[in-house]
Design a protein around this nucleic acid. Sequence first.
DNA 1: CGCAAGATTGATAAAGATCAAGCCGGGTGG
DNA 2: CCACCCGGCTTGATCTTTATCAATCTTGCG
Lengths: 248, 248
Amino acid sequence: MEIRQMIPSDPHISKLSYGAALSAEDCAELRSIAAVTRAVDGGIDLISVTEKPRNVHLVLDGLACRYKMLEDGRRSIMALLVPGDFCDMHVAILGSMDHSIATLTHCTVVEIGPDKIHDLIRNFPDIIRAMWWATLVDEATLREWIVNNSHRSARKRIAHLFCELYTRMKTVGGVIDGTFRLALTQAVLADILGLSLVHVNRMIQQLRHEGLLAVQGAQITIPDFPALGEMAGFDSTYLHLSRHWAHG
Amino acid sequence: MEIRQMIPSDPHISKLSYGAALSAEDCAELRSIAAVTRAVDGGIDLISVTEKPRNVHLVLDGLACRYKMLEDGRRSIMALLVPGDFCDMHVAILGSMDHSIATLTHCTVVEIGPDKIHDLIRNFPDIIRAMWWATLVDEATLREWIVNNSHRSARKRIAHLFCELYTRMKTVGGVIDGTFRLALTQAVLADILGLSLVHVNRMIQQLRHEGLLAVQGAQITIPDFPALGEMAGFDSTYLHLSRHWAHG
DNA sequence: CGCAAGATTGATAAAGATCAAGCCGGGTGG
DNA sequence: CCACCCGGCTTGATCTTTATCAATCTTGCG
């Protein structure tokens, strides 16, 4: 049986609730923000290099990424945006983009204008606080990707990425029985991890044979998450999911 | 002849002036902040993992880094802090550190308490704006490090790092005749770049023999910066040094 | 003088890239 | 309905890059 839809309708609310204690009004506001969506095909730039960024983006469904092209035509992916992820909260301070953001699959996104942000700042401080938290988690994730891509073997690198995605999907309610949906081709994995497509393929097969990973199309299953995490040296601290604000 | 001191006394002012138009009062305030310094030996943690961060740090002299230790005892360095760099502007929002910050050499640092930050927010909006700019540049630098460490050969990786450091040192007035001082051991370079010490050594020698780089102790000379940049695929856009705010 | 930190060298092994096919499934146009 | 085409996955053979191991060298300094 294939699971068609696993992401709840308000992934951003699930996610932000880890960053601040959101009231019923906050949630209502966040729901209303997500009322007007835009459908975008896969492989489309949401913002591209040199462009002057205007809106904050929110991914509600699908998969997008931050990337740069190298001199020789290869693509380097520096971040994945899964449902519930915001981006460019702040970027009005910088004059221009130094990278592009593109959809990898068909996506449902929300564009939030500067007016709305100012409204939030004035009237919904906890939402803003949660959005800052999300930004800081993104930064921590960048650091962990540096560690992963610089110092781990191909095998661990792949395993670590899947552990991260599993955990992130879980926070937006996208994991059922160790299974989640994410249309990651092996070519995309190669661009993320700085490995060749062929090598990614072989390492994934190895993980499959060891029973640590199961992939069928876009459906990814991690049968024994602790085992995979142990193998990869995965420590979720950097995702800051502890809701520390609740204790104080 | 060896150049002893090349960093001007207020590197943070030089740097922040790229992030916002600072008034004479802003500069005076920044100078007074840097009046009370702390001397720290090399190899000391300024903040370590799991600690609850309190103060914002500013490096006035020396070299520090963000790092994590891996399971197997290796060290992964995710960021270098050179004179003029702030860190943890924000981090009060997060409950705990997910990495450590340590000095690599003897450093002169400033610790800025929450009270001072609140004072700045109330009375020096341009300083705050510039500090946000610095934070966003740090984030952009993390992204470029992912690209560098994931997709470039050892040779280019090293060259690219030196191009970045040259450029960053230049913005704080630390470059004279293509020469700057930075006490980077080859072991530290290995931890930054995810390469073995031996391989770093050989590649640096290669760059030296090609006349692209000269290293004598802590003194680093880049005789032909455009040539090195060209070779490494270095594009300084991500450092956001254009002073866009000046045109508008 | 002798030590320690850092740089260098040579020999060998392993991880991963590259090249070149082949395969599989789903969509499409005749 | 079927041939074929294309994107994505798989395989095998071979080549490069980089790691590892084990010394040795250099230099500043107590």
